[in-house]
């Protein structure tokens, strides 16, 4: 890529940062996604395994809401550094979780 030439503090080259509407939708969605698992857990509405799965799903949805409504992942211009960073981050995240499970399982067996 050709290096962007202007000094990064300029006011004129800021990328779009979303509208009030998108922020409100994102905010409401993330609150709902936080309250739902809390309600389920506090009222003992499901068994253990379904509860865990439910919390996981809510967490992943929460993650996506953050990315699209607050991190503006869709609106990025090329080269898409944010997407690259995200993919690398997900790889590291999977490594941390899967690696820990693998290591700690054998620990408790052995």
């Amino acid at each position: 890529m050709g290096g962007p030439n202007t000094h990064g503090h300029g006011h004129d080259e800021h990328e779009s940062h979303g509208s009030l509407k998108s922020y409100v939708i994102g905010f409401v969605l993330s609150i709902v996604l936080t309250i739902l698992p809390l309600v389920v857990v506090l009222n003992d509405m499901m068994d253990r395994t379904p509860t865990l799965i439910f919390i996981m799903i809510m967490a992943i949805l929460q993650f996506l809401v953050q990315l699209f409504f607050f991190m503006h992942l869709r609106e990025e211009k090329k080269p898409r550094f944010n997407v690259m960073a995200l993919i690398f981050g997900v790889v590291i995240l999977i490594t941390i979780i899967a690696g820990s499970i693998w290591i700690m399982t054998y620990n408790s067996v052995g």
Binding site: M1, G2, G3, P4, N5, H7, G8, F81
Partner: peptide, 14 residues
């Protein structure tokens, strides 16, 4: 990271 990716002099490729 941002400095290096975004603020290189004109023409300087990675």
């Amino acid at each position: 990271v941002v400095t290096i990716l975004k603020m290189r002099a004109p023409g300087m490729k990675l």
